[in-house]
Design a protein around this nucleic acid. Structure first.
Lengths: 101, 101
DNA sequence: TAAAAATACTCCATAGGTATTTTAT
DNA sequence: ATAAAATACCTATGGAGTATTTTTA
């Protein structure tokens, strides 16, 4: 299980369409199909039911995705804190607005 | 940032010794050294100060490791729930102990 | 002088790609 | 006919390895 795989699963859940999700996460449809199959295999869960109209989320998939969101939320806190832009530097987190001189 | 890298960082923090930690996580010392350097690079954090007596945790490393533990805790909940042994099956989670017939 | 981390490579497993096929409206 | 997923096959990157060097208490 990797954070990538969990992000992929969420993208599919959001779009209910592997082809569409693959665009959102910037990989090809076959690669995303493979990645999510591996995740399901490894975790022993059928997250999605596939059809030619897209995918639907199974009952156990619903639960699985809740767990996934918890993990990704914590991971996002970390990445926001440390990687680039947002969150930012503790050094400037207090008294960032200077008083008028 | 991967869950593996976070697990590696925690192992080093626990042992304060990359060589020792590498045994615990079953990879070689140079590979662990490289993996943690990559993590520090990517996240823009110096987690450890190195010396020939092992490593010490920096102040920002302390904070970083707190975040890491939060992520890994959520990930562990998932893995416990879905992968093998512990956590286990909802089907048997209620009335698992049969009443005497 | 020993114990730790760092460096310098080599290798291969796998994440991702393209092309195509299958499936079901 | 279309739109989706699945299959088949290929490629290259990076995660891991071994061997060695550097550092300093």
């Amino acid at each position: 299980m990797t954070l990538q795989q969990l992000k992929y699963a969420i993208a599919i859940a959001d779009t209910r369409n592997i082809t569409e999700a693959s665009k959102r996460v910037f990989i090809s449809q076959p690669s995303l199909t493979a990645a999510i199959h591996e995740l399901e295999e490894e975790m022993g869960v059928t997250i999605f039911n596939r059809s030619n109209k897209g995918v639907t989320i199974t009952n156990e998939g619903d639960e699985f995705l809740s767990y996934a969101r918890q993990v990704l939320e914590q991971a996002a806190l970390m990445e926001d804190r440390y990687k680039g832009g947002k969150g930012g530097n503790t050094i400037f987190s207090v008294a960032a607005t200077p008083s008028s001189p």
